[in-house]
Simulated scan of single mutants.
Amino acid sequence: MDCQDLPDHPAAAGLAARRFADALAVHALLAHTARLEATLAPTAGLEALFAVEQALDLAWPAAAPACEMIWATEAAPQTRTPTLALRAFDEAGRLLLAQAYRRGGLKHG
């Protein structure tokens, strides 16, 4: 799983989710996506969670696939755990794409 850096504001989480959906589209996987999983670190804040949800909803031309939003309840060591992890699965549960984003940013203030 590739880990990319995010800027230091909640809207960056939405931008990351949009880029994730764009990557699915580039690889012709958007239509094959049956389930999405988004895991957000607790330090990111509620605004970031809403931004991710909205970006994923808007990314699909028809109804978005089932989406499981996970807001972690305890902080993990920042050196190992990304702030935002996104994964897409097909109908059979096979992983189509996974991306992770870490921050200097996404800090709930």
Rank of each mutant, 00 (worst) to 15 (best):
G104F: 09
D5S: 13
D2P: 11
C3D: 06
P61W: 05
R103V: 09
A72S: 13
T79W: 01
H108R: 06
A38I: 06
M69E: 03
A72G: 00
L97E: 11
D2S: 08
R19I: 01
E74T: 03
R103F: 08
L58T: 07
A76K: 01
T33H: 09
L97D: 02
A31I: 03
A59Y: 13
G14D: 05
E53T: 14
T79V: 03
P65Y: 15
P42K: 05
E91N: 01
L86W: 07
A59K: 14
A38C: 05
T81S: 04
P61S: 14
A13S: 07
E74S: 05
C3Q: 12
A38H: 03
T33L: 10
G109D: 09
Q99I: 00
R87Q: 12
R35H: 13
A59W: 12
L56V: 07
R103C: 15
G104S: 03
A48D: 08
R87W: 00
D22Q: 04
E37L: 14
T73N: 04
D8Q: 05
A100D: 05
L30A: 14
R18D: 12
K107M: 06
A76R: 04
A34G: 15
T33K: 00
T39L: 06
A25Y: 09
A72N: 01
A51E: 15
W60G: 08
G104P: 05
V52R: 02
A17W: 11
